[in-house]
Amino acid sequence: MHSEPDVAAPVSADPELADLARRVREGVGRVSWRMRAEAGQGSPGPAVLAVLSRLYRAGTQTPTELATAERLQPQSLTRILASLTGRGLVTRTPDPGDGRRSRVSITPEGLAVLREYSVQRERWLAGSLESALSPTERQLLRLAADLLLRVADA
């Protein structure tokens, strides 16, 4: 007999903590969605941005390291890397320690694409913060942002 998972099961024994988790998830998700929507048509897709961001933050990586870190299927990553290489946004060079592997690096052009996308999103967000929040609320949000970064790194 197969039982359905209980989707109504509480996420925490503490109802206030469960409500906070839901509200943070919803707020972060909606802001993230709006930033992607505001970036406009022709913006890189999420997987492309994830690969470029990873290369920027972590430096040169093997395709296997990229696929693992970004939880991408190797076939998907192969298509993404082919596109990025063709557009001059990344370079692939032989691994000096193992000629069968390659190493992938972001190019200055790739960094420019990544930065422009970030600037577009941050420009929209800064305008929204200015129009929707008081100076005191913006200070509270600054504290909350720092806390979210701590949670993400935990």
Rank of each mutant, 00 (worst) to 15 (best):
L77E: 00
G127V: 00
Q41A: 12
P44W: 03
A37R: 11
R87M: 09
S76D: 10
V48S: 07
S12G: 06
W124N: 04
L141I: 09
L77D: 04
A8L: 13
G97D: 15
R142E: 10
S76C: 08
G45I: 01
L129T: 08
P44Y: 06
A47R: 13
R57D: 14
E130N: 13
D98T: 05
D6M: 06
G27C: 04
A112R: 14
S102V: 15
V28H: 12
G29H: 06
L17E: 12
R34Y: 07
P44V: 08
L89M: 09
V11P: 03
V51A: 03
L55S: 02
L52V: 04
R71N: 14
R123F: 12
A50R: 09
L84H: 00
V113A: 03
Y56S: 15
V48Y: 06
E109D: 14
R57Y: 12
T93C: 07
G59T: 03
S43N: 07
A58T: 07
A50Q: 10
L20V: 12
R30A: 14
D98I: 08
V90Q: 01
R25D: 15
V151C: 09
V48E: 11
R57M: 09
I80G: 00
G127I: 01
L111Q: 14
A21F: 13
G127W: 03
G40T: 04
T78A: 12
E70H: 06
V31K: 05
L81Q: 01
G86T: 05
R150C: 08
I106S: 06
L52A: 04
T136C: 07
P5C: 05
D19T: 13
P5N: 03
G42C: 01
R121K: 12
L20K: 07
R92S: 13
G42P: 02
S134M: 03
R92C: 05
D6K: 03
L114T: 00
L125N: 04
A152G: 11
S76T: 15
Q61W: 01
S32R: 11
G86C: 06
V119E: 11
T85V: 11
R103N: 12
D146N: 13
L49Y: 00
V151Y: 13
P96A: 08
E26D: 14
A9M: 08
R71L: 12
A47G: 07
